[in-house]
């Protein structure tokens, strides 16, 4: 797969202003990752593991202290490329209310396009297309504050989509949503990825990460696992030791294996768990 994002030996730290004299808090300690065009990568890690800091490196909100980040071959530290990088990599954050600026849905989606001086006819076309993609076209004349959390978050995604980015980085986009809102966003993400958009999804929900093509696990500013979901989630003890979890079906199969049941240790989906348990229980029935 063609490389789209290259992260090379990146270190990053914040200054802790409350201490006197201010102390340095190192958040990333030598992170290297390559992400291909069109991939769907989930990033896991407990609070403070460096996930969000990493995300902000990808469209030059943060610049590496050491090492370098390249987006589509462009160095994020090179100011000349700032505009091109931000055009390619869009971001969606946790709280939908912090990302919506206008009082009408379609105006909100058009906001960034107007800022960069896109032709009105082109704005119309892109806004309509983005709203259709996230399934919010019929709400285009509604007031955002009357929508549900999941709907608002889809508007925020549409605003990013209208910029036609090649990659969308989402930092816990479902954290404030109810189960239905979470399903809506996951459906949208998978649809975008199928259409070729590179997705980087930072999440605390293991069942969401299990749906990605690749899972990266961060701990204390380092990448400690990077593989397909099945391989990552079968390492239950390792994940628990860094404050993470596995899907409940994985936990169940591991508990049964410990009791002597013969089951594979890499079950991460409900369907698979059902089939395996059915086969196990049916025999004597």
């Amino acid at each position: 797969m063609e490389k789209f994002i290259e992260i090379k030996d990146v270190e990053f730290s914040y200054m802790n202003e409350y201490d006197d004299p201010p102390t340095k808090n190192t958040v990333l300690r030598g992170v290297s990752l390559d992400i291909g065009r069109g991939e769907f990568v989930a990033v896991l890690g407990h609070n403070g593991s460096g996930k969000s800091t990493l995300a902000k490196l990808l469209n030059a909100i943060n610049l590496p202290e050491k090492g370098e980040v390249l987006i589509d071959g462009m160095l994020t530290s090179d100011e000349e490329h700032l505009y091109d990088i931000r055009k390619r990599v869009g971001m969606v954050f946790q709280n939908p209310d912090n990302q919506i600026v206008a009082t009408v849905v379609e105006e909100d989606v058009a906001f960034a396009l107007e800022n960069i001086g896109v032709e009105p006819a082109e704005i119309r076309r892109r806004v309509d297309e983005a709203l259709k993609t996230v399934g919010m076209y019929e709400y285009r004349e509604h007031a955002p504050h009357k929508l549900s959390g999941g709907q608002k978050q889809r508007i925020a995604i549409a605003g990013v989509l209208a910029m036609q980015p090649e990659c969308i980085v989402m930092d816990e986009p479902t954290a404030m949503l109810d189960p239905i809102g979470r399903c809506e966003i996951m459906k949208t993400i998978k649809q975008l990825n199928a259409a070729g958009v590179t997705i980087i999804l930072i999440t605390h929900y293991m069942d969401e990460a299990a749906q990605a093509g690749r899972v990266v696990v961060m701990d204390s500013g380092r990448v400690i696992a990077d593989d397909v979901p099945k391989k990552v989630f079968s390492q239950m003890e390792m994940l628990k030791s860094v404050g993470l979890d596995v899907p409940d079906v994985t936990e169940l199969t591991h508990a049964l294996i410990a009791e002597g049941c013969s089951l594979p240790d890499d079950i991460i989906s409900e369907d698979e768990c059902f089939e395996r348990l059915y086969n196990l229980l049916k025999k004597g029935g």
Binding site: D178, P179, I180, D207, P247, D248, V249, L252, E270, C273, F274, L277, Y278, L281, K282, G285
Partner: peptide, 21 residues
């Protein structure tokens, strides 16, 4: 009504529906 039940509950409901008693 737009609520979910725990993942294990769903798995065991399916097992019951499939004839495991």
């Amino acid at each position: 009504m737009g609520l979910t039940v725990p993942q294990v509950t769903r798995v065991f409901d399916r097992l019951r529906a499939a004839g495991i008693e």
